[in-house]
Deep mutational scan, measured.
Amino acid sequence: MQRVNMIMAESPGLITICLLGYLLSAECTVFLDHENANKILNRPKRYNSGKLEEFVQGNLERECMEEKCSFEEAREVFENTERTTEFWKQYVDGDQCESNPCLNGGSCKDDINSYECWCPFGFEGKNCELDVTCNIKNGRCEQFCKNSADNKVVCSCTEGYRLAENQKSCEPAVPFPCGRVSVSQTSKLTRAETVFPDVDYVNSTEAETILDNITQSTQSFNDFTRVVGGEDAKPGQFPWQVVLNGKVDAFCGGSIVNEKWIVTAAHCVETGVKITVVAGEHNIEETEHTEQKRNVIRIIPHHNYNAAINKYNHDIALLELDEPLVLNSYVTPICIADKEYTNIFLKFGSGYVSGWGRVFHKGRSALVLQYLRVPLVDRATCLRSTKFTIYNNMFCAGFHEGGRDSCQGDSGGPHVTEVEGTSFLTGIISWGEECAMKGKYGIYTKVSRYVNWIKEKTKLT
């Protein structure tokens, strides 16, 4: 034993070699072989497995989906700052455009905790909710729209109204504003409101030439003092309507412009014939205590009207009353817009006519005020429907199939267009061939041609 100890002390290297040989010859039971080890760690190889990531292109799944990435790591994937920024906006807080917040056709661009709407022409605001041009839906104005110097929408209202708090709607500024039905039992019968379409306001006024200088022999019209197929109006439903009495009662109609003036057809009036105007009328054979009678003290036909040349060209006249009318729910003026808007309103496509005229061709006159909704007829169809001249200051309205029309005794009465609950004068009943005849239409004086003249002559002093 002493000898062994001496050998170990003198030859430590020998001992180490012996131990190493023993270990190498022993069977290893701690580690699995290569094949079995792979069965336990069965993990798919990654895209760049075996390579240094710093030297390969980034992978979106590896960089940002398996674990949260930084902007720089995302930049490695896209290799483009702009594309990385677009991805980053949604990656950080989701897609803010998912709810489609942009209105009126706006395009949404996502941002971090926010979004941006790219608005089409005519709109602005956070969600493109603000109209900035009158060309689109009248700028959301209830009545009139004008573009300011910086191309912003400025709404306005006709006389007797003021802008509401929203700067879009119009509200009454006087007790009985024009064009409004205020009798409670008839307010439910107000005709369907007309909503502004998209309009090209630059070209809204037709490029028409008034044929002022045409000389033409007097034409022989049949029954051209021209509501057939209409309905009984309720008291106060058309408070701007008046009836004219002269040699015979209810020979023509008219509309209240203001307390002192009536507008009617020029062919209705004769110099030297006494005319009485009755406002607030409903049943011409009954006294309903809503009527107001006034005498006409002055007749002003349009300066281009000449019955000797043509009885229905420039067929418009103004009547001055001896005493002002007292405005109330049964006696209310009709609204008159400017030339541009009167023309736009007419193009809405349908209007209402009213009167006490004959209820059928050569038949009896109506006792109760009649009204009828009539569609506008395109000019080409209008011209083809008659052998008589249709001037540019006239328009056609009615039904091709016949059966409904204005008729004798309705002449001078109103053709009105309702705009968001307020009625505007767009025409004056003038003439036609018979009444409600198939293929024939009622012919009306186009008020847009005469609004400046009306307003100039009827100013209240």
Rank of each mutant, 00 (worst) to 15 (best):
G357Y: 15
E434V: 11
G94Q: 09
A233L: 07
Q57R: 12
Y201W: 11
A317G: 02
Q185E: 14
V227Q: 12
R43L: 10
V447R: 00
V257L: 06
T158A: 11
L376E: 03
T215Y: 07
V419H: 13
A308P: 06
L327M: 11
V181I: 11
A207D: 08
Q167M: 10
G246C: 03
A37F: 04
P375Q: 11
I309W: 08
T287I: 13
G398W: 03
Y201Q: 11
S448L: 02
S406L: 14
N138K: 12
N42F: 06
G280Y: 02
V228G: 05
E66M: 05
G122R: 05
H400Q: 12
K457T: 14
V242I: 05
K293A: 06
A265K: 01
A9V: 12
S182E: 07
G230T: 10
G357C: 11
W453E: 01
I136P: 15
P175R: 11
S350I: 08
D249M: 02
N166G: 04
G21L: 15
A173S: 13
R384H: 13
P235S: 07
E129L: 03
K45M: 07
K293I: 07
P301M: 13
R384I: 07
N38T: 15
D249N: 03
A164K: 08
N113S: 06
W118L: 13
T342E: 04
G50R: 09
D378F: 03
L24Q: 03
P44M: 09
G280S: 02
D405G: 12
F388E: 10
G160C: 01
N258H: 03
R46G: 14
E73G: 07
D338H: 06
D322S: 04
P239S: 02
D150G: 12
I299L: 05
R379L: 14
D212E: 11
G58M: 08
E288W: 05
H34P: 15
A308S: 13
R43M: 13
C134L: 03
C117D: 02
V353L: 05
G413K: 06
E98W: 08
I256V: 06
G280K: 02
C155H: 00
F388H: 14
L103W: 04
K339G: 07
S220F: 07
V243I: 11
G21N: 07
K438M: 06
L425I: 04
T332D: 00
T389I: 14
T225K: 09
P324G: 04
P101W: 03
R364W: 05
I344S: 14
E231Q: 08
E86L: 15
I309R: 10
I316C: 01
Y391F: 13
G94M: 09
K234Q: 07
R379H: 10
Q185M: 08
S204W: 07
L41I: 12
E72G: 05
L23G: 00
V202S: 13
S107D: 09
N213C: 03
S350G: 10
T158W: 02
C252Q: 00
G349I: 02
I336R: 00
V368R: 12
D110R: 15
K68Y: 08
G439I: 02
N213S: 11
G351D: 01
V174I: 09
A380G: 13
G50C: 05
K188C: 05
T215Q: 06
E35N: 12
C69Y: 03
E54G: 12
K438Y: 08
S49N: 15
W88N: 15
H303L: 05
D200M: 06
I344G: 07
N304F: 14
K109A: 09
L24C: 09
S365H: 11
C155W: 00
H267A: 03
C119V: 00
I300R: 03
F424G: 01
C28R: 01
R140I: 13
V277M: 03
N283H: 12
L346I: 08
L318A: 03
C108S: 00
D212K: 08
T426G: 00
W356G: 03
K347R: 14
D315C: 01
K234T: 09
R379D: 08
H289A: 07
G246Y: 01
P175A: 14
P101R: 05
V227T: 08
Q96I: 14
N343M: 05
R180H: 08
P375E: 05
F388I: 14
G179M: 00
F360S: 10
P333L: 00
N80E: 08
F31N: 15
G13Q: 10
Q216W: 08
P12G: 14
G13L: 14
C435H: 04
E98S: 15
N151M: 09
G427Y: 01
F238W: 07
N42I: 12
V248N: 05
K109G: 04
Y201E: 11
G236Y: 04
V278I: 05
V30Y: 15
S354R: 08
I428A: 00
E434Y: 10
E171V: 07
L14D: 01
G13M: 09
K387F: 05
I40D: 05
K438G: 14
G427L: 00
D378E: 13
D223I: 10
R75W: 04
Q96E: 15
G230D: 05
G432H: 08
D198F: 07
E82I: 05
V416N: 03
Y161H: 04
T190G: 10
L346Y: 06
Q216G: 06
P12Q: 09
L327H: 03
T186L: 08
D410W: 13
E420W: 14
G58A: 11
F31H: 08
G272V: 02
N283W: 08
E288P: 06
Q167V: 05
I443M: 07
G357E: 14
S204V: 12
Y441P: 12
A307Y: 09
S184C: 05
T276D: 06
T287L: 13
T264C: 06
G13W: 05
K51P: 15
E124M: 14
W261K: 02
E285K: 10
R140A: 15
N203M: 07
T215R: 06
Y91C: 05
E456P: 02
V153C: 04
E61I: 06
I7W: 13
Y115K: 04
I299F: 09
E281L: 13
V451Y: 05
G355R: 15
S184G: 08
E434M: 14
N127A: 06
R75H: 15
N135P: 15
N283G: 07
N80Q: 07
Y47C: 04
K247A: 09
A380W: 12
Q241P: 00
R373K: 08
R449I: 05
E72W: 05
G439R: 10
Q143A: 00
K347V: 03
E116C: 06
Y161V: 01
L189R: 10
A250R: 08
G105T: 04
A266K: 02
F345K: 00
T342S: 14
S255I: 07
P239R: 00
T264N: 00
S70T: 10
K89E: 04
Q143G: 00
S385H: 14
H361K: 15
F196P: 10
I284V: 10
D322Q: 03
Y305G: 02
E124C: 04
Q167H: 11
P44C: 04
A207N: 11
F196R: 09
K274M: 08
S107F: 06
C268M: 01
T426C: 00
L23Y: 07
C145S: 03
E208P: 13
R191D: 09
C141L: 00
P301Y: 09
L130S: 14
A207L: 06
V359K: 11
S423M: 13
S423L: 09
A279F: 02
I443F: 07
F424Q: 00
F348Q: 10
T426K: 00
P414K: 02
S220G: 11
S411G: 11
G412V: 06
I136S: 15
A317R: 00
A9Q: 13
S406A: 08
C268Q: 02
N203A: 11
E54P: 09
S354T: 14
K126A: 13
A192Y: 09
F360P: 13
D232C: 07
T85G: 12
F55W: 09
E76S: 07
G357N: 05
E231D: 09
F144R: 00
R46V: 13
G349S: 10
Y47N: 15
V202L: 13
L327W: 14
L103R: 08
E86C: 04
S148W: 07
V92E: 15
S411N: 13
Q237K: 04
T16H: 09
D338K: 06
E171M: 10
H415D: 01
V242C: 03
T381N: 10
E53W: 06
G58Y: 04
